[in-house]
């Protein structure tokens, strides 16, 4: 069945004798895109910012970049599972806010402050399970369900604090947001752990292979005896759990949470990271490593654009254009490979 190379003729490139070479190069590019993803882009960005600012490459700054990336990495890891099944989770920012609120409120229980951590995680998991239940149980479109939850959970987060900022200056789990282990911020270690766990689930477990199967061919997955509903319930629950973890991390970092502002439009950064990382919106194609690179690209851009003194407004424009560029790449890779 057709390989990416069969394309070359259609575009009328080169003499017939050159075709195999063109084919090889094409395949090379296609293959490379899939495995290393946007890594070259990340490296070029880093080198560019270092040349422009020479403050970018300092250990201190890189540490800041990774801390800034950490919460988005966690959200994007959950989002990767969802998008691999050709779904979407728009509610992660709201779930993060609600989880942070719950974590902070629970942290004020005298003597039991650490309960804030499981409480925050459970909040995210619970909302994620509601998403998954509606999508898998009633076969509702993920976009609509999670769009509704985006609004509803945001309202819930505001309700929790009576629309006030909740502060706990003696937060028992503040070490999560501010502590270090062997000189590495704990936030970074947590996000790295989430990436490794995600990789393990996706590539080493039956569940992970089923995630790819459902994304690649939902009808075929069902006929092959895969419980598609269970896979969908899992991915949305996992995304919720990641949002809950993000909420705990955020609470631990800030000692405070605010139902209105916290996590606003985080879902967009998470989706952007996943798509930049080469995971296809169509489902079934993508990797957690790509997502990690995608999230780092976003963090490096934010940081680097600030360091180079690009005005705030222009940062938005540049970031948006980079995301569109990445989706364009995704489209071309699709049309190059999906011709079977």
């Amino acid at each position: 069945m057709s390989l990416p190379g069969q394309y070359s003729g259609a575009r009328g490139e080169g003499a017939p004798s050159a075709a195999p070479a063109v084919r090889l190069v094409r395949r090379g590019i296609g293959h490379g895109l899939r495995t290393v993803g946007m890594l070259p882009v990340l490296i070029v960005l880093c080198i560019g910012f270092e040349l422009l600012t020479d403050r970018f490459g300092t250990w201190q700054n890189l540490s800041i970049v990774m801390q800034q990336a950490s919460i988005n990495v966690v959200l994007a890891a959950g989002m990767t599972f969802v998008i691999l099944t050709s779904g979407i989770d728009l509610s992660v920012g709201s779930m993060l806010a609600a989880s942070a609120m719950v974590a902070l409120i629970a942290s004020k229980v005298p003597g039991w402050g650490m309960i804030g951590i499981p409480a925050g995680l459970a909040t995210g998991l619970g909302f994620g399970a509601i998403n998954g239940g509606l999508i898998a149980g009633f076969r509702l479109p993920p976009f609509i369900v999670t769009l509704g939850m985006l609004t509803a959970v945001r309202g819930f987060a505001r309700l929790l604090g009576n629309d006030q900022t909740v502060i706990n200056s003696s937060l028992p789990f503040a070490f999560i947001g501010n502590g270090t282990l062997l000189g590495i911020p704990l936030l970074v270690i947590i996000s790295a752990a989430v990436v490794v766990i995600s990789w393990f689930i996706l590539r080493r477990t039956v569940l992970g292979i089923h995630v790819y199967s459902v994304g690649g061919n939902p009808g075929g997955a069902r006929l092959a005896g895969i419980r598609v509903w269970a896979v969908l319930l899992f991915v949305y629950s996992f995304s919720g759990l990641c949002a809950g973890l993000g909420g705990v991390m955020s609470a631990g970092r800030l000692y405070a949470a605010n139902g209105i502002q916290l996590g606003q439009s985080y879902e967009l950064d998470a989706i952007a990271a996943v798509i930049l990382g080469g995971t296809s919106f169509v489902g079934g194609i993508g990797s957690i490593w790509g997502t990690l690179v995608g999230a780092l690209i976003i963090a490096v851009m934010s940081n680097g654009l600030i360091l180079t003194g690009v005005p705030d407004i222009w940062q938005y424009i540049v970031k948006g254009l980079v995301i569109i560029g990445a989706v364009t790449l995704d489209h071309f890779r699709q049309s190059g490979e999906a011709r079977t």
Binding site: T205, L207, Y212, S213, G216, A221, A224, I285, T340
Partner: peptide, 27 residues
Amino acid sequence: GLFLDMSVRDNINTMVLAEDARMGGVV
């Protein structure tokens, strides 16, 4: 039928992955 983006191996094993797995779900 097939999962076209996946390997021949994964396509052959789809129906028995779970029962072959170790530790309740590791392939």
